[in-house]
Design a protein around this nucleic acid. Sequence first.
RNA 1: GCGCCCGUAGCUCAGUGGAUAGAGCACAACCCUCCGAAGGUUGGGGUCAGCCGUUCGAAUCGGCUCGGGCGCGCCA
Length: 540
Amino acid sequence: MTTESLLKSLLLQAFAKKGISLQENDIVIERTKDPTHGDYSTNAAMKFCRLAHCAPRDLALFLQQEIEDPKIERIEIAGPGFVNFFMHKDALASILPIIFADPDHYGRGEKKGIRINVEYVSANPTGDLHLGHTRCAAVGDVIASLYDWAGYDVTREYYVNDCGNQIEHLGHSIRARYHELFGEPLQLDEDDYHGEDLIAIAKEIKEKFGDKYLADNQESHDFFIRFGIDAELGKIKADLDAFGVRFDKFTYESDIRKSGAIEETIKFLAPYIYESDGAKFLRTTDFLDDKDRPIVKSDGLYTYFMPDIAYHYDKMARGFDKLVDILGADHHGYINRMKSALMMKGYKEDVLDAEFVQVVRVFRDGAEVKMSKRTGKAIAHRDLVEDVGRDAVRYFFIERSQSSHLDFNYNLAMEQSSSNPVYYAQYAHARCCSLLSLGQDIPLDGDGRMLKEEEEKAILKHLADFTSMIEGAAKERAPHKAVAYIHRLAELIHEFYSRWHIIDRENIPLTSSRLTLIKACEIVLRNALDIIGVSHPEKM
RNA sequence: GCGCCCGUAGCUCAGUGGAUAGAGCACAACCCUCCGAAGGUUGGGGUCAGCCGUUCGAAUCGGCUCGGGCGCGCCA
């Protein structure tokens, strides 16, 4: 039993004696910032004083007298009615054997038996990933990891939009580059892709197939599209792989279309479909939307929305309890129409949630750099990761809540050395490893029995918070909370290291306890860095 | 006009009902004869955009105003 749940049950019992019956969720146990406020604190006396018909401090006094446990050293009342718990140091150190029992899994929550599908990036295979995708990739990947650690059954999915206008333009652009290689003038339309990366693809086609696809026929048309999609998706996969982002499943829009799922879906949705100006609209306003949405254009082609509905139905049919879409913030209008479509199928409103990732603004040489996928002037995901490094990019991109704009200083990131926050955490890990290596002949006691300093107690408390941090960060889909946890742990380690000499061969029992604590720090820091996908070198 | 996100230190941002509002960067001073100075200690810096309300208690919840970003039926 964790200290937190112990305190909750003691409080529940005490309240019951007053004739007040509460649920465990009603009680809030807080970590105290100030050590003079004890180790844990509750506001319950203030929150429920009205139910007890007495003043907050009187109720606090009652709780103070009523609650007793061997793990609690003493209870104090402070301020308007806070009840502060001071724990015996043994109670704090009891987290150490738990960590060592299964180090690689410390922090993992109980299996919940809930299946979650997290879809992210899903960039169209028409060009290289840019900074916006980088942030979505980092955010989505860490959210999925948090779910995994918290005990959910997670699938990471990428939806490939390999149909529609943009794909036609891709095929046409590659065809134009291909013809250019045979001495013809370049013929690109305004909506085509003007980036020079397509030249490499055209060259590859020429090397492999010669002039086979110069003829303008259906075969050539289909070939350029197919080859282009495979080439672009191949690059995207390689770039994401280098970023430490891997998917369990790629679903292709073309497969959804071929399966007949769209026609089935339209048939099913018929009661909600009406015609207007030659187009077909879905009455999403019957549910959460403020406007009805077109699903079939007046030219008879589907809008993007129609296959997307079939795709989301497909995901639900695969047995997921929850869908999470990680989307760019400019897609925020999308969520209510898709929820509405899911509700038409009888699903609850909250089977789908979206996380909107705000834009990254890039500053270079003191000026903002505007991005454009087509002009080729955008900062590519690949260049960024190669220049700045995978660890630093991941850390930077999830350090702040995804709902906040991110200002990225390219110059600063390029010259990152000591002022890079990721090194602060990695250095703490390397320090732990270094200490453990220096003291490797000294056996660890495994329970930290000699620990008593404030710095040591602060670390023990923070280590004990790891599991609930993961649980909370997963529930809130807040990767930046994992970063905040890591930063705090690194800070505590650095402070402890600076304040106390850890390896003292004149005092082996104390050294043994302190190295035990350092080992626990190393384990938790390593697990935490694994969650955010940042490496944890033993030497730097 | 309607909808979503945002407004907190010089800058970038944490903090969603609690105690003296925090961190990084930047700035100033100090700390290696001693386990890694990519570190530590100290300091200056704030009408939490504004007003009204709810509450024992509001940066946090509700309403209005101002300011910024994004979106608004046949683009994805």
